[in-house]
Design a protein around this nucleic acid. Structure first.
Length: 514
RNA sequence: GCGAACGUAGCUCAGUUGGUUAGAGCGCUGGAUUGUGGCUCCAGAGGUCGGUGGUUCAAAUCCACCCGUUCGUACCA
C-alpha cells in the first residue's frame, strides 16, 4: 500500500451525530430575532426569566429511569462518578418543577416565569425533527384557577402574532383532560386495569388531524394498516362506544376556518347524553369558563378555539390542555407542501411539583418549539434573512509592518464609526484572491491603497455590488481589469464619510428592488 | 421498533446482458493576468464505487448480512 493510501486511511472522518445540526449565521440570527420577540411578549405579561442546567438527575426528570439494558432509551443518560444517573433534559417543565420544589420557601407563589433552552431527545430524527432543539416555555406555578390557563392561551396567541403570523394563519386549540377522562369513564374504560386501552383511545383521537374521521374509527376499532403494509392495532371498542367517542370528538362544529362557535359547542357538550359522570361535568364547566374568559377579553374563535380532538401529552396533564397550530401550508426546500401542524402546546400539570414536595402546587404552562417554528417562518419568508451587511474589506497591497499599521488604522476608523470592517488576513501577495474573497463573502465595499495611492494621500473605494452588475456588460478581461469598474478615488481623510455615503446608496438600491 | 426505496469524486448524477485503466457537469487548485472579482481558454488534484463476506475466469453491476440516508408507520415526556 502506498504512503498516500495509508495516510488516507488514517484520516479521521468528520461527521456529525445523526439528528444534530450545525447552526449557520443566518439560523443563529433568525433564532435570536425570534427569541427576542417571544421574550418581549412574556415580559409584557409580567413573567420573569429563570435558567436551569441541561443536566438533571434522571429520577427528577420523570418516569424515564434508565435500566441496565437500555440506559439511553428516549433520553441521553450518563453515570456520574458516584454512579448516580444523570440525563440531558428532554423538556423544560420537569426541570422547572424541580427548581420550584427545591426553592419553594424562597419563591413567591404564584410564580410567573419563562425560559428558553436546548432540550434533547434520543429518538429517531426526521425532517424538521432533531435530537437537540430549542424550546421556549412560560409557566405559572401556584395558580389553581382556570383563569391562569386562559392567560396562557391568550399569551400564546399574542406570541404568534408578535412573530408575524397573521390572525387566521394560526389557532390555539383548547381541550380539557377531565372531559376526555369523563368520556372514557362513560364507555367503561375507567379504572387502573383499563389504563392501556385508555392510552390507545387517546392516541387514536390525537390522530384526527392526520387520518381524519375514517382513520380514527379504524384505530378505535380493529386497527389500521398504513401504506407500507404496517398494521397498527386498534382499541377494539364496541360499536356503541366507538360511535360515542366519535360523537364527542366531532363535536367541534366545523373544520372550516372562521366558522367556529364555541358557545354552541359547549351547549352540545353539556347535552351529550351518554356521559353523565362528575369528571365530565367538571371538565365541561371548566371549558365553559375558559370560553367566557376568552370571548370577554376579545379572543374569539379565530384565535382561540375549543377542540374536543385536541389531546396533547398523555403523561402529566390534569386539566386544560392547549396547542398552537399553524393553518397555512408551508412549502419546503424540495417544493413539497407540508402541513406544519403543532408548533407548541401545554396544559395544567397539578401533580408535578407535588412529586417532590408532597404538597399540592398547581401549575400551568406551555412550550413553544422554537426550532420547528423557525423552519415554518423561514419558509414563509417571515424572518428577516441576510439583512446583515457583511464587513467592508480593507485590502492589503504591502505587507511591511508600517503599511499593515496604516491598513489597521483605516479598519479602526470604520469600526469606530459603527461600520463592520476587517483587514484581509490571508496571503496578501495574491491580490486577485483578496477581491475574490470579498466577492464571495458578500462584502459591499473594498478599500485599496497601494504605493501609488499612498504617495498621493488617497485610497480607492470599490463598490463590489455595482461592479458585479457591470460585469455582465464587459466580456473581455483586459477591459474588465483596466477600467476598474465601480471604483472611485478619494482622499485618505474622506474614507469614513465616503464609505457611509456608498453604503447608504446601496441600502437605497436594496429598498427599491424590494 | 416495523416496512419500503436508495447509497458511484466536495455537490448533482451517468455507467450497456457482469468484461480492460470507472466518467460528465458544477465546484476546487494552479496558469494565461507579479496592482483588481466576473467571462473565456489551458493544465491539475480529487474515488477503499457505503462496509464485510459470498457466487464467478472476471463484480460498481448478482446474492447474503451489516451500516447509513430518505419516505411511510409506531413511539413522542
Amino acid at each position: 500500500m502506498s504512503e498516500k493510501k495509508k495516510k488516507k486511511l488514517q484520516k479521521l472522518k468528520a461527521r456529525l451525530p445523526r439528528g444534530f445540526v450545525d447552526r449557520s449565521p443566518a439560523d443563529i440570527r433568525a433564532t435570536d430575532e425570534m427569541v427576542a420577540k417571544i421574550k418581549a411578549v412574556y415580559e409584557r405579561y409580567g413573567f420573569d426569566p429563570v435558567e436551569t442546567p441541561i443536566f438533571e438527575y434522571t429520577d427528577c426528570l420523570g418516569k424515564f429511569l434508565p435500566d441496565q439494558d437500555r440506559p439511553n432509551e428516549g433520553v441521553f443518560s450518563v453515570q456520574d462518578d458516584d454512579e448516580q444517573w444523570m440525563s440531558l433534559r428532554y423538556d423544560l417543565t420537569a426541570p422547572l418543577a424541580r427548581h420550584v420544589a427545591e426553592n419553594i420557601n424562597e419563591i413567591q407563589l404564584p410564580y410567573r416565569t419563562y425560559r428558553a433552552g436546548w432540550v434533547f431527545r434520543n429518538e429517531k430524527p426526521g425532517p424538521g425533527r432533531f435530537r437537540q432543539f430549542m424550546q421556549f416555555d412560560a409557566d405559572t406555578v401556584g395558580a389553581p384557577g382556570v383563569q391562569a390557563d386562559a392567560e396562557m392561551c391568550m399569551m400564546m396567541a399574542d406570541t404568534m402574532e408578535a412573530l408575524g403570523i397573521a390572525r387566521g394563519d394560526y389557532v390555539i386549540r383548547v381541550n380539557n383532560r377531565k372531559v376526555l377522562d369523563g368520556v372514557l369513564e362513560a364507555i367503561g374504560l375507567g379504572g387502573e386495569k383499563n389504563a392501556a386501552r385508555r392510552l390507545t383511545v387517546l392516541r387514536a383521537i390525537d390522530k384526527f388531524d392526520k387520518f381524519g374521521d375514517e382513520g380514527v374509527r379504524l384505530l378505535l376499532g380493529d386497527g389500521r394498516k398504513d401504506e407500507s403494509g404496517d398494521f397498527t392495532p386498534g382499541a377494539k371498542l364496541d360499536a356503541d362506544s366507538l360511535d360515542q367517542v366519535m360523537e364527542f370528538v366531532s363535536a367541534r362544529k366545523s373544520a372550516e376556518v372562521g366558522d367556529w362557535n364555541d358557545e354552541g359547542l359547549i351547549d352540545d357538550l353539556e347535552r351529550l347524553k351518554f356521559v353523565v359522570n362528575e369528571t365530565y361535568r367538571v371538565g365541561v364547566h371548566e371549558l365553559a369558563t375558559l370560553q367566557k374568559l376568552f370571548s370577554k377579553s376579545g379572543y374569539t374563535e379565530d384565535r382561540i378555539l375549543i377542540d374536543t380532538s385536541c389531546v396533547r401529552g398523555l403523561e402529566y396533564y390534569t386539566g386544560p390542555v392547549y396547542e398552537a397550530e399553524l393553518l397555512f401550508d408551508v412549502t419546503n426546500e424540495k417544493g413539497e407542501t407540508v402541513q406544519f401542524g403543532s408548533v407548541g402546546g401545554g396544559g395544567r400539570y397539578d401533580g408535578l411539583v407535588k412529586r417532590f414536595t408532597g404538597q399540592d402546587v398547581p401549575a400551568t404552562g406551555f412550550s413553544i418549539g422554537v426550532s420547528r417554528l423557525m423552519t415554518a417562518l423561514k419558509n414563509l419568508g417571515k424572518l428577516g434573512q441576510d439583512d446583515v451587511i457583511q464587513p467592508v474589506l480593507v485590502t492589503v497591497m504591502d505587507g511591511d509592518t508600517e503599511a499593515l499599521g496604516r491598513y489597521q488604522k483605516m479598519v479602526q476608523m470604520l469600526r469606530e464609526a459603527g461600520i463592520r470592517a476587517e483587514m484581509y488576513q490571508g496571503n496578501w501577495k495574491k491580490f486577485g484572491n483578496q477581491l475574490k474573497y470579498a466577492d464571495r463573502r458578500g462584502c459591499p465595499l473594498a478599500i485599496i491603497q497601494g504605493s501609488d495611492e499612498r504617495e498621493a494621500g488617497k485610497v480607492q473605494i470599490k463598490d463590489l455590488i455595482e461592479g458585479k452588475r457591470l460585469s455582465g456588460e464587459i466580456t473581455d478581461n483586459v477591459t474588465w481589469r483596466e477600467s476598474r469598474p465601480a471604483q472611485i478615488e478619494v482622499a485618505e481623510d474622506r474614507i469614513v464619510a465616503e464609505v457611509i455615503r456608498m453604503l447608504a446608496d446601496q441600502a437605497e438600491d436594496r429598498a427599491k428592488s424590494g
